[in-house]
Design a protein around this nucleic acid. Structure first.
Lengths: 209, 209
DNA sequence: ACGGCATTGAACTCATGAGTTCAACGTAGT
DNA sequence: ACTACGTTGAACTCATGAGTTCAATGCCGT
């Protein structure tokens, strides 16, 4: 029974993975369940054996993908816990990591899916638990608050600081990546990270007394 | 014949308007040509009399809508031509105007359409002539270059300044408007404009000698 | 009054895809 | 060996929507 249950679980996971891959490639309406079944290496009735609907299949696939993306992004903030004496360097590394995470294939596809199906699935943003920058902003604000307390940043609202840091960092991506269509080279990402951190620190570093 | 041609033109315009309205409401695949014909107050064969395809209908509708949006946004930069002695005030007014233009119903719907159909119509960004922030960035960079020459801003790359100004201003919109789903109150927009301009000037105002 | 042209509504063809059914199959537990 | 259950492929139903056809109806210039 262990292997049988394991077998079921594996199929379920394969279905979710295949579903996200196909949805990401074709969008919700264009993707047909048969494609998803093929991608998952499974028969169509098996898909309906695990998920009642194409709609719930979509929900679960998107939920899993965005949870993974959010975890990775929050994980990338780790270096800010103990930035050493090179604050600018630590910020740049984090910024660069965030840029890479925001420009990879899956993230871009996920963003496209969210934008295009947000009207058909108005609740999908809740399912994603505010995985749009929201929870990331909170996590970053926590880190920046520590930096404020230790006198490295100006003593004003860390929530605003986090929001503006992410805006400076991610805002330019939309135009540069052509809405996520074009991949951006790593050196260009480095430059973007440097420019964002430079401007951020110019505005938010502790005033020299 | 003048009125007859006028009549045709009116129908064509009505079709384009109706098409954008329905596409904005339902998305490309969900929108059916009969809906568009009804919205435009026209029969279905009339639609095909003006546009060969549902696809070209979509292209033309989106092109018209985004050209209008771009014109309005560039027009909103006008106060920067002669900002008087209150630079922060002028920037704030422009920022507020841009925020209103970026959060209205049509703009949000347009952005959703671009994101969702960019894979089906990869050329649509060219049709839109880079109407994603790109041309707006250029126009703003021109204004900021003038301000740099007159000594109001730091003497560094005005293109970067424009990109970061727009990032600071528009970046927070994504999370706050829930991908364009929720309307943002005018006082919140004022606050966003003020915060963006404040941080921008802190980083980009001419260094006090 | 007449002829040309766009428009109209209704009915039609055709393709696509969601979701179901079912008989045959494989495999694990007893 | 026997049973129970998930899986499989194929065939099926049913709804939807793109694009077309056509006869009938205006409307405009001459």
């Amino acid at each position: 029974m262990a292997t049988s249950a394991r077998g079921r679980i594996d199929k379920r996971q394969a279905i979710l993975d295949g579903a996200f891959a196909v949805f990401a490639r074709l969008g919700y309406t264009q993707a047909c369940v048969q494609d998803i079944a093929d991608e998952a290496g499974v028969a169509k009735p098996t898909v309906y054996n695990h998920m009642t609907d194409k709609a719930t299949l979509f929900r679960h696939a998107v939920e899993a993908a965005s949870q993974a993306a959010l975890d990775a992004r929050i994980g990338a903030l780790a270096p800010l816990a103990d930035p050493g004496d090179d604050l600018a360097g630590a910020l740049e590394d984090v910024a660069h990591a965030l840029l890479r995470l925001h420009t990879d294939e899956r993230s871009c596809a996920l963003k496209r899916l969210l934008y295009s199906e947000i009207t058909r699935f108005p609740d999908i943003l809740d399912v994603v638990t505010g995985s749009g920058p929201h929870h990331l902003t909170q996590a970053l604000a926590d880190r920046l608050a520590r930096l404020t307390l230790s006198g490295r940043l100006r003593a004003t609202d860390p929530d605003l600081a986090a929001e503006q840091f992410l805006a400076l960092l991610l805002g330019p991506l939309e135009a540069r990546s052509r809405l996520g269509t074009r991949q951006i080279g790593d050196t260009e990402l480095r430059d973007l990270a440097r420019a964002a951190v430079c401007t951020f620190l110019r505005a938010w570093a502790r005033d020299t007394p």
